[in-house]
Design a protein around this nucleic acid. Structure first.
Lengths: 148, 148
DNA sequence: TTTATTTACTTGCAAATTGCAAGTATTGTT
DNA sequence: AACAATACTTGCAATTTGCAAGTAAATAAA
């Protein structure tokens, strides 16, 4: 299979599957989108709604409602900014942090299992290549603009 | 970023974006899922519903309805099998074939643009690595089982 | 051959997700 | 002070999803 599209088609689907079966942690049933949101909140330093929505290239209204859900689940906390009262700053609750960490662990475990089918050299090459691909996509004008 | 999860998180999101902005062809507005369905029908030889649904790891009921939509759009044709009257064989209409081909072209163009940010050596390494990754995922027990 | 089981789908909800339009506060700008 | 811009939030309405339950045909068992 020399065809790039073919490779990406399969890869996309597989990533979807990987992301799907990763997100049930201690009674919580987290959707893929929600796990991405938790991940980004965890990574950034008390970000605003806008920030995360833009990073994930999500519509702000959809994002707003997802956050409402996550707040109800007591995984995310919304704090009004003292600087700018329009802004809500996002952070993980203790529970949220726990869930995010758990997902991170299981995702890494999944990935380790996947990579165990490669030898050391291949593993390193693949990782390096994915980084290169990420960089290429970030430079691309046709897609993938956010997610710096 | 040595963290595998980080890499996959970003890559997953970027793939999502790439897949999203690829699918408006001549008046038709194709969703990502639908483009994947068209792709697989085109690839396989008059497959059954089950076959495609399984390949794409989709719930058969969801799939059934997606096919109904695609049939209404006159992109897909459903032919009852003469061998087994329970089975519906899927094929692309002329229009469907055209749409599938157009999407394929534009996806490849997007990918070419992305890869243009790499040099020849990197390009080949990355492609080869993605193939390796696909193989590793196909061997994995934790995910990605269909999509042989 | 009749009866039961499995297979290949299709429909009935009911819930979740999405995005555009329109609205509410704030904040910044003439 | 008046107007525009920003950071969200709500009102739909369409789409998508999956489990349960149903139909019809094929296969296995009695």
């Amino acid at each position: 299979m020399e065809n790039k599209r073919e490779i990406f088609h399969v890869l996309t689907r597989r990533f979807g599957l990987l992301n799907k079966n990763c997100c049930s942690v201690g009674g919580f049933d987290i959707s893929t989108v929600q796990s991405h949101i938790l991940y980004e909140i965890d990574k950034q330093n008390t970000p605003s709604m806008q920030q995360i929505a833009e990073t994930l290239a999500m519509d702000i209204t959809t994002f707003s409602r997802q956050i409402q859900t996550l707040v109800k689940m007591e995984l995310v906390k919304k704090t009004p900014s003292s600087q700018d009262k329009r802004v809500s700053l996002l952070s993980l609750t203790t529970q949220g942090k726990f869930v995010a960490t758990s997902i991170d662990h299981s995702m890494n475990a999944y990935l380790d299992e996947v990579f165990s089918h490669l030898n050391e050299f291949e593993r390193e090459t693949v990782i390096r290549s994915l980084q290169l691909l990420n960089e290429a996509m970030s430079k691309s004008s046709v897609c993938c603009t956010p997610l710096y």
